[in-house]
Amino acid sequence: MTMLTMTGPRAATHVPPSHRRAVLTFARREFRDAMSSRWFVLYTVAFTLLAVGVSFLSLSGSGSHGFAGFGRTAAGLLNLVMLVVPLMALTAGAATIAGERERGTLLYLLAQPISRTQLLLGKYAGLSLALVCSLCIGFGLSAGVLAWRAGGVGVGSYMVLVGLTAMLAIAMLSVGVLISVVSRRTSVATGLALFVWLVLVFVSDLGLMASSIVFQLRVQEIFALAAVNPLQCYKMGAIVHLNASLDVLGPVGAYASYTLGPAMPWVLSGSIVAWIVMPLLLALVLFNRRRSI
């Protein structure tokens, strides 16, 4: 070790980083960590393989070409996304703060000249970017198959599907981060995330069907309940954007088309945006208020 040659305090250098710098620093670090995380790589590979597989099978099985082939592939991808993407985003979000807390790194990071808001927003931004990159890899390769087999039709619709999927992923990430903020241990956070995933993916669909029968719900009530679920919004939004009619969803879809008309995509996208913003805001408030480390 060399002899220390430090001088006294130099006030000019003891300034906390700007909000932008702190958030970007954590975002970069989180993005790098996520992209090198074994779980994240596994999810990305699984999603990519499934997406490419769905595209290939949808096209080669039916022998469809052109827009018909694209529609079949998009429908296949839609179902795949609704299963895999929420799971990926929820678990990634759930591990973020709870993981730092469990490892003891949260205290160390918070002892730096940064705020809790900067830390949370930075981690959130980094994870969002990593999720979007992961989705782009899957969708990109799937698009390659589409271009090869279906002749590259429906590029615009495909991009909308990717955009909606990214929104869904970020919404689920917000929910995951909220779970992470209120959980002390990673295992608890992951368990809660899996429970939320089950509720959103399976229970809400079945629950909606069951309650419509048991409580004799009206069409507008069923639509309102569906519009609260980000996955249902994603499904309806994707169908609308793919230039299909919501009539395929039965009376509820027909009611939505008739009542909302051209505002339908905005209402559905707005619901997903609300699922991005509200859980994130709640997570920020709780993370700042509870001050647990």
Partner: peptide, 21 residues
């Protein structure tokens, strides 16, 4: 002014807790 206060402080924990990788 927590950020400004912590900008004046270097903190050493009991054991460096950071990502091992």
């Amino acid at each position: 002014r927590g950020r400004a206060a912590r900008a004046l402080v270097g903190y050493v924990p009991q054991e460096l807790a950071f990502h091992d990788d």
